[in-house]
Write a protein that binds this DNA or RNA. Sequence first.
DNA 1: CTGAAAGCGCTTACAG
DNA 2: CTGAAAGCGCTTACAG
Lengths: 341, 341
Amino acid sequence: MRPTVHHVAEEAGVSLATVDRVLNRRPGVRAKTVTRVNEAIAKLGYVRDISAANLAKQRVYNLVFIIPEGPNSFMLGLESELGQAKLYSALERINLDILKVRAFDSDALANVLDGLDLTQISGVALVATESHRVQGALARLRQANIPVVTLVSDVSAAHRDHYVGIDNVAAGRTAASLMGRFVGHKPGKIALLAGSMLVRDHVERRIGFEQVISAEFPELDCLTVQEGRDDAMVTRSVLADFLGREPGIVGLYSIGAGNRGVIDVLTSKPEYGSIAVVAHELTEHSKRALREGVFDAVINQDAGHEVRSAIRLLKASIDETQVIAKQEIIRIEIYIRDNLP
Amino acid sequence: MRPTVHHVAEEAGVSLATVDRVLNRRPGVRAKTVTRVNEAIAKLGYVRDISAANLAKQRVYNLVFIIPEGPNSFMLGLESELGQAKLYSALERINLDILKVRAFDSDALANVLDGLDLTQISGVALVATESHRVQGALARLRQANIPVVTLVSDVSAAHRDHYVGIDNVAAGRTAASLMGRFVGHKPGKIALLAGSMLVRDHVERRIGFEQVISAEFPELDCLTVQEGRDDAMVTRSVLADFLGREPGIVGLYSIGAGNRGVIDVLTSKPEYGSIAVVAHELTEHSKRALREGVFDAVINQDAGHEVRSAIRLLKASIDETQVIAKQEIIRIEIYIRDNLP
DNA sequence: CTGAAAGCGCTTACAG
DNA sequence: CTGAAAGCGCTTACAG
């Protein structure tokens, strides 16, 4: 049988209240008593039963998720996963608040962060757009002992406790290796289409992509990055123009969102059918594009996994417990027509 | 505030004990009283706090995992994940027992299943080798109301509650699509190497693979399947012989385990360097093979995810609660050199 | 067929 | 600085 606080109290010759004080590092216990209790804990191999503790405390975890608003399918998917998570989290005394903020707008993000009532919040997860103000706001949270997790798009490591997302340089390299093989060593130009070069994830994917193309597929030539603002409408006109005026394109790497716009353009002219396409994020649109042969591969990160992982990491920070490291690694998933979920 | 048993009792005008009887469907309550309590539950939207219930019950979940023994790296990985899971599961009153049985030996498996003490067990997960006797043994478990989950290799759906693993036909199709692209539409022969044609997963992968090759890459010719018993030594000699006597092989699909043997043979002669290779399961060996360009792609299923999923599914069956369906889907993962975890 | 009281492992005022 | 008692939401003998 697992030892309980009662066993520890008896072993240390103190009361339950004192054991509890030591366990929770509350002040007002003599150093000598602390030592006695800690020795008893070590001797018995006592491990606290967190659910019993939470029951007694009537603890509630108030977690705030801040995500970009707008018609980006991936972010809508993330939001829907958060909705799902909200339902079952309630059973574990976890409250999820979802706040939306303008995409790519670091000031708007900083405003939301600054507006949080720190006395009401146990942890924060955010899809970051980095800026000096955002960094300051995050520092304030962490000073208040509120754990911060970045989701999908990171800030520099000093300003958050964890990053939940993929290694975007590696994702770009992965895209490039697939692209090179799909094109099949015939020379040509590669079009690059991103949401914005202001967010770290898109920048990093591009870096990884160009690394591998220049090192291993020198016959391919990466053109200047076009920006579609992760918006299907903008993407459509930007890409249509670009393909119209650049002949000899054999491959397209769609770094960001806006896949609907990409698909519209690619299916608008028969000659675009031969372009090898690697895109990001599995959505209903990109799944269909894979099935119909418009896209050749999609690199994905599992939004549901990311949401659950962020929740587990925040809760573990708050409880000061361990997570299972391998469970929290977000994989760079490759999808082709045949392994769609 | 969430309603509790106290609120339900008051609303229904009964005692806590009676509420508890209804909640747990215990006998000895008048039908009329049952209705009153259920109405109160519905009216208040009461949801039982499982951790409080488990605390009161001092409930322990005894889960048995049955996996094949032997030097198969994937199964050793699965075992190590089970070891990990054992550590943290203890915190949630879950006991894991790991039983090992000879690989591909359905009688040995049936013997272990028949030997289980059904009064001591809450749930069973097994890597299945199917047979009539195994089916019978599983039926006996399920009659005793013990949930059964198959892991990695399935039996027919009537004999288990859940299957935790990938769709192996789709995995085979995925391997074929990659193979076809990697070979690059030049004609040639494809070698197929499996562990055993007695296990469903290997049979299914082969079916999927040949479907896609014959439909979409008619220039490729699949040769007779060789069996390596998921053993590196056996695999090595079988494959070396085979490649020695079959000229014109442009691709190799390694359906099962025994990757070490495959790597040894492929690196033994320079002319094998041009063979496109798709294999299964990410292990230290196959990762190295990807990095060094010996393998072109590896199809993987995440053993850690499978173990955790099996535990969650068994626990949910026992508690009669819901799981998050999407979290329990095991993905057909594709790894190339660039997206290794 | 039903209920009052004690207990699961932990925490929290309150008293001293 | 320390302890006795009550309580978190649920379940379990025991009594009637």
